[in-house]
Design a protein around this nucleic acid. Structure first.
Lengths: 194, 194
DNA sequence: TGCGGGTTATGACAACGGTCATGATAATGG
DNA sequence: CCATTATCATGACCGTTGTCATAACCCGCA
């Protein structure tokens, strides 16, 4: 998740995602995004003629792709992957971040859903797409692991839901306890579904 | 959850909670809260000298108490309560609301966590308190149902996390599918923990 | 009747938001 | 070399926000 030195456009999308993660969509100013990306303010209207709405939606797209890639990487890095181990890896990434960097940031898709689901239709759709882009590879990996096709999608939904909720509670408590709890409680059950 | 005809102070706290549920904390204006509560704008500074921060925190307190009461009511309304049935009731309340009133509103505690966890310390603490006020009675009921004391809190955390995440996904998708999925998948497992 | 508190009402203020208009500069290609 | 696009830079506009100051109202009580 490094702020890689791509073009200014990508940097602004990335910066938007990070600021949304921390403060939510409405509290994230465009001037702040530009500054945080080391990009000129004028570039915003050039690269994102659709305004803040477009920038936010692209940040969600980015987040969906990122989550999807992480799932594939988690599984490919395991010698004998199981549903519980995949879930532990997904949760573990958040535990690691919170322990090493503090509880400043949450999930950008959750933030966009909370802030825009009712007020900005295109962003609501982008949130749904991001969740789907995340859930799809999880479900696919579950079927590869032996989960019946009919249950894979529901289990993937359960995994992502539990993680999202635990992220919220962990940030509120400033404690990784909720993340550990869902990982420990749900992991064995997921493995029993193969 | 009726907008009962209490004093104007309670009405404003209630209205704040509802608007936060819909638009998040930052997009909820104080003028809008007063109007929505049928209360004069001047009353805000009179009843809430601590400003928006105090109002939001009290709305979270209200939400925590409300959730706590609901849990007790769910259990007391069951002839033979089990963990899975309690979870189904908690999820079912959201399914019912979304099917009858649309997907406009989410959980106010989630909204406050997303919007204020990093920017307003007192509100972060209020969010944590609300989550705790919700989790405590759930864990207590689980132990009454026979769940080992050592696991009750973790299972309560799992239940609330899954519900919160499913609420987010349901709002994004404008579909109760995620709520049904977590209810169906997690219910049997919860019952196996007695 | 008049006093005094708890309320309500209204307007102003400073700050900040997203957006747009307008130029300046850099890069590119004929 | 020029011209045409791409990118950057800056300032202004208008709406909204939270907050505050001020004053009027209301109603029980003396």
């Amino acid at each position: 998740m490094s702020a890689s030195e791509r073009g200014p456009r990508e940097r602004m999308v990335f910066a938007a995602a990070q600021l949304i993660r921390r403060d939510g969509v409405n509290a994230t100013g465009l001037r702040e995004v530009a500054e945080h990306a080391g990009a000129p303010r004028g570039s915003l209207q050039h690269y994102f003629p659709g305004g803040k709405e477009q920038l936010v939606n692209e940040a969600l797209e980015w987040a969906g792709r990122y989550a999807s890639k992480r799932v594939a990487r988690f599984v490919s890095g395991m010698s004998r992957p199981t549903p519980g181990r995949l879930f532990a890896a997904m949760v573990g990434q958040w535990i690691d971040e919170y322990q090493s960097e503090g509880f400043a940031k949450g999930c950008p898709v959750a933030a966009a859903t909370v802030d825009c689901a009712e007020s900005v239709e295109s962003t609501r759709a982008a949130s749904a797409a991001a969740f789907a882009a995340w859930r799809r590879p999880v479900a696919r990996e579950l079927t590869v692991m032996g989960v019946p096709a009919g249950r894979a999608d529901a289990l993937a939904t359960l995994m992502i839901s539990s993680l999202e909720g635990a992220i919220l509670m962990a940030r509120a408590e400033r404690n990784v306890r909720p993340l550990r709890a869902v990982s420990r409680e749900l992991g064995p059950y997921l493995d029993s579904c193969v």
